[in-house]
Nucleic acid binder design. Structure first.
Lengths: 202, 202
DNA sequence: TCCGGGTTCTGACAGATGTCACGGTGAAGC
DNA sequence: GCTTCACCGTGACATCTGTCAGAACCCGGA
């Protein structure tokens, strides 16, 4: 019984190469291949894959959002998230989005193929080292407001803008940002933002 | 006559997939495949490829440095740089490092195969859109000292540290950083650093 | 020779940023 | 009830940062 696959990756070359690689496996069949996150669901509805392999960095809709939509609208299709770098935050968010597999591109092809087969059989598959790292990173130590302020800081550059947007005094915003930098062990709010983002705390 | 290829990419999965993809072409033969920049030269000396396909992001030695070493030590081997995102700065640096081809991973496989054949035949191959972008970005408007300070700012976080390292007054460092932010059209030295880096001005 | 343009370097100043101490509120535990 | 604790919100303060005007220097051209 062959496993029907959907591939989503914005890099044409990688997508084609992965398609060829996976088609070599006798029990795999690549039935669809898209380059944008917002094309995933339509393709899945049309071609009914058993497993969707989603990259995270995609235009239109990122892989995590696409995973959420896909699991909601195409229940028979299981999602494996494939990503460049094993950022621990992505794993948690991928699981929350309904993904049942998580493979990093550093892994050899055999690991990916094995993961696809096990996911198709109903198992959950996560790279053990990555799972450990996620466990080590733990839950977010940020309070709700610290998180809000950091998110606002992502698009607004200056403290005054953030304060205006959240209806807070500037001192308050500075205070939350300071807390965030302390908790992330960084020196700037910019580094704090980067670190918190990487760890999936936002 | 077959073209002998060397593949260098730190992501195991991508490397394997590209290997399979390129081996499908009847006139290509992948003779070596490495995951680290500092393994490129040794592998090239051993297997004597006609064309080396180098990713930029690699541990040990990045693809650009590897290209420089390779062209110096293995003259018969032509270098094609393969990179994720068409950052204009990389193109210039790749050419300076002796690469004769530049392909982005967004391109379809046929483009890559065509580029390899033409490079093997002695041509130079660069994505036209990328070349145009590089031309548009133009030469660096930064002065020598502004460049020095920005590079120092990459590893030192605070102005005082940069000043100490370059034996300058803090005011001077601030001034150069200010000039850099103006010339890059940004608001922070951090954004300035990012932009200058992307454009290959460092 | 002098002049002008560009670069290097500096201190002074205003504004932005990070840290601190503090008060208020609500939930949990005795 | 009271205490404790964590969180929310604020202003004050010291420090850091970015901008400005200007001095010194080099170099090529009138």
């Amino acid at each position: 019984m062959t496993i029907r696959l959907l591939l989503a990756d914005d890099q044409e070359l990688i997508r084609q190469a992965l398609g060829v690689l996976l088609d070599l496996e006798p029990d795999f069949e690549v039935v669809a291949s898209v380059g944008r996150g917002d094309e995933v669901t339509a393709a899945a509805l049309e071609h009914r894959p058993d497993v969707a392999l989603l990259d995270i960095d995609m235009p239109g809709l990122d892989g995590l959002a696409a995973a959420a939509v896909l699991t909601a609208q195409v229940p028979g299709c299981r999602v494996v998230v494939l990503t460049t770098f094993g950022r621990t935050g992505y794993l948690r968010r991928a699981m929350e989005a309904g993904a049942v597999g998580f493979v990093v591109k550093d892994a050899p092809a055999a690991v990916l193929a094995d993961a696809i087969r096990r996911v198709a059989a109903g198992e959950r598959v996560v790279d053990p080292a990555l799972a450990a790292a996620t466990l080590a990173a733990g839950e977010s130590p940020l309070t709700a407001r610290e998180r809000d302020v950091l998110i606002a800081a992502r698009s607004s550059a200056t403290v005054a803008e953030i304060a205006a947007r959240l209806y807070l005094a500037e001192g308050t915003v500075r205070n939350y940002l300071s807390g965030a930098t302390t908790k992330t062990g960084t020196r700037n709010r910019i580094e704090a933002l980067r670190v918190a983002d990487e760890r999936g705390w936002l």
